[in-house]
Design a binder for these strands. Sequence first.
DNA 1: TCTCATGTTAAAGTTAACTTTAACGAAATG
DNA 2: CATTTCGTTAAAGTTAACTTTAACATGAGA
Lengths: 125, 125
Amino acid sequence: MFTIKEVQEKFGLPASTLRFYEKEGILPPIGRDSGGRRLYSEPELEWLQLVVALRDTGMTMDHIKNYVELVKQGDETLHQRRQILLEHKQDVERKMNQTLEHLEKINRKMAVYDLLAHGKKDFLI
Amino acid sequence: MFTIKEVQEKFGLPASTLRFYEKEGILPPIGRDSGGRRLYSEPELEWLQLVVALRDTGMTMDHIKNYVELVKQGDETLHQRRQILLEHKQDVERKMNQTLEHLEKINRKMAVYDLLAHGKKDFLI
DNA sequence: TCTCATGTTAAAGTTAACTTTAACGAAATG
DNA sequence: CATTTCGTTAAAGTTAACTTTAACATGAGA
């Protein structure tokens, strides 16, 4: 069991964000201690890990919320959930390829700068 | 020379965004025809291409603007500009590695769904 | 027992990056 | 010549994803 501060440190997410996610239904309702303070347990941290993976790969919070709704509906939605993950994965892969092309563009620009730095202005095509 | 509509189609960027970028100084002031309408020429499109590459790889508009300021200052800032591109590139590469790790997480989740789908619940560790 | 760190909530505020609107001008088309 | 179509500006509006604030509660240490 972990306090909100511990989870904040483990995940590098501000406590305010953790509360926000719970309020929005992106995390399940977290258990509390006698004083009403949140205590996170393992399955909730597992869950948070997947949320972070989806978020950091560009899934919107709205879509994550939709996915969470399916999780709440139980095993009948397994196939649908797999499909969502698959499509998101393909999406991420497309974006990564785009990024690689953009990096090429940036590399070429750097190469131009290198040529200019060595006073080779005249040899540019 | 290209009208704003042509650039919009070439780049998939709304005309409003092109005007916005110019207003913000992210694009240089674009030439106009007799009627005051924008006419984009090759170097401006080249420039737009780099802006899009930087933006789509996660550079903020503020940082792009800073970079543009350096370009405007001429060749004395060549080294600084190269450095900015280099650091950005390294940043993008770090993020791509993070993304690959996140994809692994998503893959593992999909594998779990596959096991569950085939009723192999009992064989999960 | 005092006080200080840590937690709680609901509600309001912030920020980036556009997008929309309103009011208008120019130009191509039937 | 009338009417769409395409363009212009400045200013206001939008959206996502938090973050901050205010007002209060709890529990540990001096």
